[in-house]
Every structure is written in structure tokens, then in C-alpha cells.
Nucleic acid binder design. Structure first.
Lengths: 217, 217
DNA sequence: GCGAAAATCAGAACGTGTTCCAATTCCGAT
DNA sequence: ATCGGAATTGGAACACGTTCTGATTTTCGC
């Protein structure tokens, strides 16, 4: 989906001084096969996660399912954690793209937020093991993955911000961003409570509805 | 601190039918040495975590530092994750006990909540590696640790609830509990952002102050 | 096409959480 | 004081994430 994201380590074939134009080097057989490899690895990850959750995503199995060597998986994703976090970021980006095309139609900000997040949670509930694996990776994140964690939180906050001031095209106010951040934090914590088995899946919706009601007049 | 918490697996020396009185069997050389062992293990855990965070808490080292066999550590704590979560629960329980004696004196609920949580965060910042280890364990939690996760969240929510209706002795209203839960979720998410390196430690205080201002009129 | 450089492969190897086991020690009741 | 059973010990063993290595294949500029 991303326009040929370079593989993880300093992309060895990064544009040298020879071609300083900003073109992201999207073409070439190498780039294409690399993108395909990356995609196979991510797909294999999702497949395994869907079957048995975090523990079922074993790097040797990912490599085998993606039909690449173990070392290649690590060339693209520095760790299992990062692999799952990148899958999570992609999932959230897909959700945002979908919402750009199908924005919520409810009349009030609170109703729109609740509608969007209920929809998202419905999807997450369909693949509880995938969600558990992703949320778990999110909760374990270390400094070396701070960039993706930030990306994921920014996407989630963006989704909520858009839902708040739905059809309007103005930039979000400072207060809207604050509220969106709080809702995102509630969302993440609540998902964590669900995948830990502390609360049922419905509790996520309830938490978000309550928070939205209190925060969005 | 807890009145002789029984070791993890079905405490083998649990009161059999012979002594049905509810006395928690706090006495006896066995119970005493077990309590001491448990304490040594927890202390060793904190010591190692303070030195190098989650990764420095290696079960073999914990066993050695606590002067017990590796198998004994696992008899008391089913996993490294659980070990750290129990330490976290104890830490939170200590905080609550302290606050019962030194409740916040600010005039408004929001100010009291902010005061209490700022104080807690100040302590957490003094031992960032310990905090990181605990928060990380919290974020990784699995179903088999749902009970401690619930205990930790309940203690945190209780701390916040008490701060909201400070000196008053009435039970919390339904709305207060809802607000307290949201604040706890913001707290946990924000701590996660800090230990992940996504945000600086001050962001935790800022998030909580903003949320408290919005939620507590 | 050819050759150098990069990427990939297959698999061994290592570290740490976790489990398992036989031998020993400790506790509590007789 | 002694016996039975539970707790503890020391250490081997296993699983899986991760790293490393040397051989092989692919790509790209000429």
C-alpha cells in the first residue's frame, strides 16, 4: 500500500548521489521484488496471527509461509514486535483511508466519533487474535520502535479528529486535538483490557461512548 | 506487606478440612519462611529492574539474587510477567495506603486529582527503568494474568476516585467512577507513551492535567 | 552478455524464559 | 526423636527470538 517502503536497514539500494531527484525509486525489478517480499511477510504474519494470536506468529513460520529465509524477514523487520507494529500501522492507515471515502454522517461530533469507533471495534472483534497480537506488541514497545508507535497513535488520533469535525474542512482546533488524544488513549487502554481478558469486547464500545459523551458537548 | 499472600500455585499447605476456621494461617515456620522467600524474590526483582529495566530482570539472576532456586521463583510467580505485575500491584497498593494517610488537600476535585497523580509520577520518574519494566509487563499481559491486571487497574481507579471526592466519606457516584476510569486509562496510555520513548515524562502530567480539566468541572 | 555489488538463502548457533527431574532438606504431627 | 509429605535445590533440557556465516542468486551499469 505504501509507495514502496524501503526495507528496514539503511535501504542498501538507496538513491546514491547519482540520482538526487526526490523520486522514491519506485521502479526497477529489485524494488518490485522487494515490495512483493515485504508484502508476503506481512500477509504471512496476519495469517498466522489470525490463527493463533501473538504466540502463533513464530518468526520461522512467518519466513516459511512467506517463502523467504529467516534472515530476510529480519532484513525487512528488525524484530517480531516491529513486524506486528507495522502490520498494525497498515491496518490503521487502511481504516483512515476508508473513512476518508465513507465519513460518518451523524449530526453531532459525539455521535460521529462513537459511530466510527464502533465500526472499527466491530472489525477488530472479527479477528480477536490478530487484535490481541497487535495490541500486545503495542504494549511491549521499546524505544527502537518509538517511530511506529508514534505513527500508529497519530493515525488513530487523526481518525478521531476527523470524526469530530466531520464534513468541515478547517484545521482541528487545539481543544479538538486534546479531546481526540484522550479518546485515543481510552481506546488503547480499553483494547488492552479486552485482549488481556479483563473486560469483554463490549466494554471497549462502552468506555468510548462514555468518554465521548463526557468530552464532546 | 500483604498479610502473607499465599504462594502462587494452589498453596500446597492451604488449610485442609482439618482447620476450617477462616484464620489465614499466618503463622508457622513454613508460612514465615515462605513469606520471606516471596519478599526476597520481589526485592531482587525491583533491584534488578532498577538497574537495567525489563531486560535486566532475568529469572536466573532473580533467583540468584533472592538466594533461591530458579524453580522456586516459578513456584511463587508463574512467569516473569506475573512477577513484575505483582510488584506493580504492591507498589500501587503502597501508594494507596500512603494517600489514605496523606490525602490531597486541594479545594477542587480536579486539583486534587492532578496533585495526587503528579506526586505518583514524580516517584515513577525517579526509577524510570522500574516503571518501564512494570508498564511493559502490563502492556503484554495475557489472560492468565487478568486477575492482577484487574487488581492494578482497580487500585489505580480507587486512588483517583478517592482524590475526586477527597475528604467526603460517601460512596463514589456512578459518574465519578466513570471519570476515574477514564483518567486511569489516560494515565496508563500516557505512561506507555513515556516508557516507549514516544513522549517525554512531562507529557504524562500534561495529559492528566488536560483530561482532569475537561472531565472534572 | 559480463562482472561487481547487493540481496537472498539455508542453517547453525546463542540467549533467555520456561519446564522438568532426581536428590535433598525442611516442617509438622505422631 | 522420627516419619511422611511438601518444599526446595541444582541443573539439565527445551522453545523461540535473534544473530551470524558462507554459499548462491539476482540486479544493475557497462
Amino acid at each position: 500500500m505504501v509507495p514502496v517502503p524501503p526495507p528496514f536497514p539503511p535501504p542498501p539500494n538507496a538513491e546514491t548521489a547519482a540520482d538526487p531527484d526526490a523520486e522514491p525509486a519506485t521502479e526497477g525489478a529489485l524494488a518490485r521484488s522487494q515490495a512483493a517480499r515485504r508484502r508476503r511477510v506481512l500477509d504471512a504474519t496476519l495469517q498466522l496471527a489470525a490463527a493463533g494470536g501473538f504466540d502463533a506468529v513464530q518468526m520461522r513460520d512467518v519466513a516459511a509461509a512467506a517463502d523467504v529465509a529467516l534472515g530476510t524477514v529480519y532484513r525487512y523487520f528488525a524484530s517480531k514486535e516491529r513486524l506486528l507494529l507495522e502490520a498494525m500501522a497498515e491496518q490503521q492507515a487502511d481504516l483512515r483511508a476508508y473513512l476518508d471515502v465513507h465519513p460518518p454522517r451523524e449530526p453531532t461530533p459525539a455521535a460521529r466519533v462513537v459511530s466510527v469507533l464502533r465500526g472499527a471495534n466491530r472489525s477488530l472483534r472479527e479477528f480477536p487474535d490478530v487484535t490481541a497480537a497487535m495490541v500486545r506488541s503495542f504494549g511491549t514497545a521499546q524505544i527502537e520502535n518509538a517511530d511506529i508507535v508514534r505513527r500508529v497513535t497519530e493515525i488513530m488520533t487523526g481518525i478521531i479528529t476527523s470524526a469530530i469535525h466531520a464534513p468541515e474542512r478547517r484545521p482541528a482546533t487545539e481543544n479538538e486535538v486534546r479531546v481526540a488524544r484522550i479518546l485515543m488513549q481510552v481506546w488503547l487502554s480499553s483494547l488492552n483490557g479486552w485482549v488481556c481478558g479483563v473486560d469483554g469486547p463490549d466494554r471497549v464500545d462502552e468506555d468510548l461512548a462514555a468518554a465521548a459523551a463526557l468530552l464532546l458537548p
